[in-house]
Design a protein around this nucleic acid. Structure first.
Lengths: 151, 151
DNA sequence: CTGTGTGCAAAGGCTTTGCACTCAA
DNA sequence: TTGAGTGCAAAGCCTTTGCACACAG
């Protein structure tokens, strides 16, 4: 139980992901493969702009591919504060983050780390909270300790 | 205890707010007063565009005033899903919301409603979660019950 | 009178869309 | 061979900025 929002299928490897795309009748163009590889190699969530620059691809193509990957259940995007959307691979677990508004740090969480928080929201309001699209934002222990530091 | 992010000063009335602006050496122009009044009358968070249209003001002026109000601690903005930022008055308590990604419903919470959720985040990760800037997003009881309904 | 705040217009980030060409299947 | 996917360019949202004028204090 504790349904969570884990993907129903897990794509652990690049080949798994490519196979899934082929099964959907999608083609494996060079840009598409590059984007997918870059997501596999990424340390954390990345922006379309970042991928385009790093891979020397047109940003429009990157956006279209990210959308395709998202519709295929291979990738997802999330919002950390202001600025561009960030993209991650789905299927290897880590989909939830804690974002510190003080120092900008992003802490990657293991899959069920927020289950107790979700349970608390469910208990109080009946809402099934998702923290995948809009992660929990706050102040990390260090920033929470330092001077009031508004904003 | 349970510090929360309640404003240190409370502005219950329009006159309180106007006085606070004057104290800061800010002028009370007609557009500024209209924006403030509209925020006092608003049912919930509103966009700059909405205010501009409703008040027949230039949208740039609305944005500037919202920023001024925010810097003065009278207003705040938050992000509910995609789309424009939404603005609310600070100082009358309600600053936290639950947003349903299924049906778009926005549930306004009383000031300390999320204290137990915050406590759970603190307990688990040492983070001091803020839900004022990026509210908790999920599925309301009704949407959580209905078919899987991705997205 | 002074300079803060205004409307209008232009520009700036992020993202999407139109279009003709390329290349995966 | 053919249409899905590409690069390039333009446009679309949301928001900010520049500038000359207006008006609050």
């Amino acid at each position: 139980m504790l349904a969570s929002y884990a993907p129903s299928v897990r794509f652990e490897t690049l080949d798994d992901a490519l196979a899934a795309l082929r099964e959907r009748g999608l083609r494996i163009s060079t840009p598409r493969r590059l984007v997918l590889e870059a997501l596999f190699e990424a340390e954390g969530p990345v922006s379309a702009e970042h991928l385009a620059r790093r891979l020397e691809l047109d940003v429009a193509s990157v956006y279209r591919n990210l959308e395709t990957l998202e519709r295929s259940g291979l990738a997802a995007h999330l919002h950390l504060g202001h600025g561009p959307s960030l993209h991650v691979l789905v299927g290897r677990g880590e989909r939830e983050y804690l974002y510190c508004e003080g120092c900008g740090a992003v802490e990657t969480l293991v899959p069920d780390a927020l289950d107790r928080v979700r349970a608390e929201v469910r208990r109080g309001f009946g809402y099934e909270a998702r923290f995948t699209h809009f992660p929990i934002v706050g102040l990390c222990p260090k920033c929470a300790a330092s001077p009031p530091g508004r904003r």
